[in-house]
Design a protein around this nucleic acid. Structure first.
Lengths: 342, 342
DNA sequence: GGCGGGATGGTAACCGGTTACCCGACAGGT
DNA sequence: ACCTGTCGGGTAACCGGTTACCATCCCGCC
């Protein structure tokens, strides 16, 4: 079923059918009706891929995330979707499951599909091969016309430019740590150490700098290694509590999800939040509100929108500085003010 | 930058370039290297849209949801994504924001893109225009080759066939209501009445039939109208409690999200869950685990996978019966066994 | 030496749209 | 009656790939 079939069926030429459907060319009403009737009778659906071949049509916006069922990604994806719709672009979402190779494959596929924007979200540990290939993509040296945006992820390398948007992780971690300090807490557990993991690294940096600013000596024993999921937070907290809980009064979990696991462990240990232990998280994703967690709110959707705008802006990836979005603390009920506080 | 440029640059013909890249045709190693070098030097990225025109390539799988940041949709989308990847299809996710017109537009766009499968997820209130247009799509009368699957949503009309997968909402609601009844509860609030809303309707039907089965008379005053979001659940519960809470001992919220709001209202009223009021939800989405909610677990991801399999199966939409996935109760800590229970 | 045949690679048609260019018909002006 | 301008619509080239078909070339064999 092609435009030629429709033309034959309507007794007109292909040009007339095309013009009738495009609607931007004067066509005799009687002719128009013949065409439209043929379209209806044959149930003709034009082929967008063929059209894209001859006329420059707006490309799609692709977003590549680890998985769509993690709220952090879902919120960003929602922002991307909104902005893509506002700019009249189709939105494709792909997931990698955290696999680097799969991510590279997907980016290549998107370029072959002539996606206009490819937005890469989330942390990843980069190796040399990955860096080299992704850098080519990011610099837009090829002819695919796809523009790559790194969204909430580390740079490709020391001084390697690329279109980048991200949250101020260090600033947020600094602020929430300062919040605990000003409530009188001095021994604060950092739950979520993962050296080499960019998100963890930047958050722990904020934690440390806040301690430094307040003249509190750092204690490596308070920086607890922990995966970025609920059960890791639960297990790490459980283990720490088994060793006695008198060496800290507050916990800064690297994410709300970790915090949720930690809170559960604290409760199972017979302790109360915030009476016995204060807890703060990061991200402001669903568990936070439900468990009354004080946390750092991230403008997820705005990040997604900013990524799309940046991708479609035509800015030069080689000179455009990274865009950093601010965060703010959301105070709920998980932090207790110590009597000894100033 | 086209295949002809590459051919010229490499000093070979377009056929040789195409064959070299396809890799399924014998090419002299020296020729192959010339081609690959040209590809690298020119940063050539083949155009998938052009290729799709001449060779029948697998289409994409499109999923259309209300919004991607609601866990219910996100989990289903994740299943769709997985199965699409397993079947080597690209996955496109689009959101409608619940707008019927936008949904129809998106479906039309997907057909023009020659998406192989279009999966429509979530509740919607159908009117005649919608029904008529969507029915044409669902029956696959056109030449786009797209196959439509309705996923967790009502049929298009009385006896209108279509490829359909869904959860057993009535069965799950029956089971969880029976769970409350066997714990000794007799006056159970149903929170989430929305006549005409298919999900609500089927869940309330299960609630009622469980009461009937146990010989408990229904009380319309116990069926509380309520929107399907957290704040509606909070508000409805708040209002109900203000009128006194002695006319019920348990609450069946139509969704976990409603339940989360209700639990908050209960707490703010100075009551405890489950000591004063038992609460159950539906869906088993994030708030449930965090607040220890007994609920009905839905195999979301499996539904998504089943939808993709059904779409790609080649089954006839006109005769294939709807596929219904079973559910099961997840018991947590939000239900109290009454002393008067058998 | 002539010839059959496998291995390579080139030419051109085709996929399904769009549109530049051209042609015929008809109206109005002289 | 003839010229010109406008309008409507047809023909064919083109977008960027793939591939059927054909032309070489070189080998071994009679």
């Amino acid at each position: 079923m092609t435009i030629r079939d429709v033309a034959k069926h309507a007794g007109v030429s292909v040009a007339t059918v095309s013009r009738t459907l495009a609607g931007d060319y004067p066509v005799q009403p009687s002719t128009r009706h013949k065409v439209l009737r043929a379209v209806r009778e044959l149930d003709y659906v034009p082929n967008a891929q063929a059209r894209a071949l001859s006329v420059a049509s707006p490309g799609a916006v692709a977003i590549v995330v680890g998985s769509v069922d993690m709220p952090y990604y879902a919120y960003i994806a929602q922002g991307v979707e909104e902005q893509a719709a506002a700019e009249r672009r189709l939105c494709l979402i792909c997931t990698t499951g955290g696999d680097k190779e799969r991510e590279l494959t997907i980016v290549q596929m998107m370029r072959e599909q002539r996606a206009e924007a490819v937005i890469l979200v989330g942390s990843v540990v980069v190796d040399d091969d990955y860096r080299e290939r992704m850098t080519r993509y990011a610099h837009g040296l090829d002819s695919s016309g796809s523009r790559l945006v790194l969204c909430g992820r580390p740079p490709l390398g020391e001084g390697v430019p690329a279109l980048t948007v991200g949250f101020d992780n260090t600033g947020g971690a600094h602020a929430v740590t300062a919040h605990l300090l000003s409530a009188g807490h001095r021994r604060i557990l950092y739950l979520g150490l993962r050296p080499g993991h960019s998100t963890s690294d930047s958050r722990v940096a904020g934690y440390r700098s806040a301690l430094d600013d307040h003249g509190i000596p750092r204690d490596p024993a308070l920086e607890v290694p922990c995966g970025f999921d609920r059960s890791s937070g639960y297990a790490a907290m459980k283990q720490r509590l088994a060793a006695g809980h008198d060496d800290f009064t507050a916990v800064f979990a690297a994410t709300d999800v970790i915090a949720a696991g930690a809170v559960q462990a604290i409760h199972e240990h017979g302790l109360s939040v915030p009476d016995d232990v204060s807890v703060v998280g990061y991200d402001d994703v669903p568990p936070a509100e439900d468990i009354g967690l004080t946390t750092v709110h991230l403008p997820h959707a705005e990040l997604g929108r900013a990524a799309v705008r940046l991708a479609l802006s035509g800015k030069d990836p080689l000179v455009e500085p990274p865009l950093t979005l601010g965060t703010h603390i959301v105070v709920r009920q998980s932090v207790r003010r110590l009597r000894s506080a100033p």
